[in-house]
């Protein structure tokens, strides 16, 4: 399966479609945006339901507080901005006004990761999984494609409490189908194998599929798990994989400090420790470039995943 055979759609588009669907189904769904209405796809909801759309200007802290107030009144607000401005700039507002109150606010952080591309470091969110998952009450979801993003959006509305959705700007391969099972908190095993387990989220699920193809040609059977929910993490699936495969690789378009890999390691280290390598951003800020160039630059490629897999296999012996 190569990228040329797959449809390329940004995950934010799936979110935008999900919002419109929710708007039709539930009149309590409202959408807020901090001046990034087109970019976040909040505009698609605004067009259909202008009375339930609220622009807050370039004021993320105010937007999340406003969303919290609406949630206290029984609304289901989706507050939309870029991931950096959501998870970083408004972190204390999310902590106190949303998570501490368990306010039913859904946070849509688009433009996650280096695949933002030419805008560079200030706009490439590499820390959201860490920043959000350390907050009590918070759920964090990183869909692997546009179809999963739409499902995650619909599922998020069913959860009572705050949810952070990490979405991407750039077109990415559509690797799941409408009929595929998806539930927040339940990891999806995409390929079975006994030699090692590769955990991935977001676009790295696709890159990991390619890595599995390479490994298979070399006689290595890797289990591939789409870990779309870094929090609450699917402990059972991790522990089972630790027992059955005995070696882990995590792959994320995100800093390895506190991200998906850390979340998995926290479970494994306390339940059934196995050798592990983390593929992700290594203590660096992003840089400008095209998404494909940046994946190469930061080592988020099937080739690097294969190298990590071989290292854990050696460590396992």
């Amino acid at each position: 399966m190569s990228a040329s055979e797959l449809k390329m759609v940004p995950s934010r588009d799936g979110f935008g479609r999900g919002l419109v669907k929710l708007g039709k189904e539930n009149k309590d769904v409202v959408v807020l945006s901090a001046d990034l209405t087109d970019s976040t796809r909040a505009a698609w909801f605004k067009k259909e339901f202008p009375d339930r759309f609220f622009g807050l200007g370039v004021a993320e802290q105010d937007m999340f507080g406003t969303a919290a107030g609406m949630a206290l009144m029984g609304k289901i607000p989706f507050a939309c901005t870029f991931g950096v401005f959501a998870s970083g700039r408004a972190w204390d507002q999310i902590r106190v006004s949303i998570a501490y109150m368990n306010a039913n606010v859904k946070i849509a952080g688009t433009h996650g990761g280096i695949s933002v591309g030419p805008d560079g470091a200030t706009h490439q969110a590499l820390e959201e999984i860490s920043l959000m998952r350390i907050l009590p009450k918070m759920t964090v979801v990183v869909p692997c494609d546009a179809i999963e993003a739409q499902k995650a959006t619909l599922e998020a509305a069913k959860i009572k409490g705050p949810v952070y959705l990490r979405l991407g700007r750039a077109p990415m391969p559509v690797i799941t189908k409408e009929e595929d099972f998806f539930r927040i908190g339940k990891a999806n095993i995409l390929r079975d194998g006994k030699d090692l387990t590769i955990f991935a989220c977001g676009q790295m699920v696709y890159e990991s599929m390619l890595a599995c193809d390479i490994l298979e040609k070399e006689g290595v059977k890797a289990r591939l798990i789409n870990m779309h929910t870094p929090k609450p993490i699917d402990r059972d699936t991790i522990i089972k994989a630790a027992h059955e495969t005995g070696a882990f690789v995590s792959v994320e378009e995100h800093t390895i400090a506190g991200g998906l890999g850390s979340a998995i390691a926290e479970v494994a280290a306390q339940a059934h420790s196995v050798p592990m390598k983390m593929v992700g951003i290594q203590n660096k800020f992003g840089v400008s470039g095209e998404p494909e160039e940046l994946f190469e630059y930061f080592g988020l490629t099937p080739k690097k995943i294969v190298i990590a897999a071989k290292e854990v296999l050696r460590m396992k012996k």
């Binding site: 409202v30 009375d51 339930r52 609220f54 802290q61 105010d62 937007m63 999340f64 507080g65 406003t66 969303a67 919290a68 107030g69 609406m70 949630a71 206290l72 009144m73 029984g74 609304k75 607000p77 204390d92 507002q93 902590r95 106190v96 006004s97 501490y100 109150m101």
Partner: peptide, 27 residues
Amino acid sequence: VEISSGSLGQGLSIANGIALAARLDGL
């Protein structure tokens, strides 16, 4: 108690959200 507070500067935004939602519902 209507809101958790203590980290300063956050209450008025929440008040706005309540006021907007109340208006939306004709409350």
